[in-house]
Simulated scan of single mutants.
Amino acid sequence: MTELALKDLADSPLDGDWEYALRIPNSPFGPGIVRAHVRAVLTRYQAASTVLDDAELVASELVTNSLSCTRDPVAVRLVRTDGRLRLSVWDSSPYPPQPRCPGAGKGAGPELDAESGRGLWLLRACADEWGHYLLVNGRRNGGGKEVWAEWCAPGA
């Protein structure tokens, strides 16, 4: 049965559209599990190594931020459509992401000795585009926000 499933996956087109989602409990294991999930999916679809590495880093940062601002589970989605890869992370917090270090909103990096505050700086540095939006009650567990990053990812 496993051989059949692997053969069916091997015969699927690598340049087709796809979507994967993962719900993560609020746990210190979350960022590592998300990194492994993103790496497995993007490796399977033969994503370019720079896109794979950047998406893995961004996913880990976004999940870490989400888990630190809420006690609830978070959700991660990877979607490839029209030659673009979108990674989004949902959490129940209604507060938009804010830079923690002075100058981070102006393109400057975080303080060298800071223990945190690098998430948005890394997001800006790694993704082709990024953004966030608030979700209204009734969607995705009654609100919260979704932070997303996109890459032009032909062949990914």
Rank of each mutant, 00 (worst) to 15 (best):
T2G: 15
T2H: 12
E3P: 03
A5Q: 07
A5R: 10
L6C: 07
L6K: 09
K7Q: 14
D8Q: 12
A10W: 04
D11H: 15
S12P: 08
P13T: 09
P13H: 04
L14V: 13
D15L: 04
D15E: 06
D15H: 15
D17G: 15
W18R: 06
E19I: 06
Y20M: 09
R23H: 13
I24Y: 02
P25G: 02
N26K: 10
N26H: 06
F29T: 08
F29L: 09
P31G: 01
P31F: 02
G32R: 12
I33Y: 00
I33A: 03
A36L: 10
H37E: 03
V38A: 08
R39C: 08
A40I: 09
V41M: 07
V41P: 00
R44L: 05
Y45K: 10
Q46P: 12
A48P: 02
S49V: 07
T50C: 14
V51I: 04
L52W: 03
D53W: 08
D54Q: 11
D54I: 00
D54E: 07
E56Y: 03
L57A: 02
V58T: 07
A59D: 00
S60G: 15
S60R: 14
E61M: 06
L62G: 03
T64F: 01
N65A: 10
L67T: 00
L67I: 08
T70C: 13
R71S: 07
P73W: 05
P73D: 13
P73V: 03
V74H: 02
V74Y: 00
A75H: 08
V76L: 11
R77K: 11
L78H: 03
V79F: 05
V79L: 06
R80I: 02
R80T: 09
T81I: 08
G83W: 03
L85R: 05
R86T: 14
R86K: 13
L87Q: 00
V89P: 01
W90P: 04
S92G: 10
S92Y: 05
S93H: 04
Y95P: 01
Y95G: 14
P97N: 09
Q98W: 09
Q98V: 14
Q98E: 10
R100H: 10
C101R: 15
P102I: 13
P102H: 13
G103I: 06
A104Y: 00
G109I: 01
L112E: 05
A114M: 12
S116R: 14
G117M: 07
R118I: 11
R118T: 15
L123F: 13
L123K: 07
R124M: 00
A125C: 11
C126K: 13
A127E: 00
D128R: 11
D128K: 13
D128T: 14
D128V: 12
W130P: 04
Y133T: 11
L135V: 14
V136K: 13
V136A: 10
N137T: 14
N137E: 15
R140N: 07
N141P: 07
G142W: 12
G143Q: 06
G144D: 01
K145A: 06
K145N: 10
V147D: 00
W151E: 02
W151S: 00
G155E: 06
A156T: 04
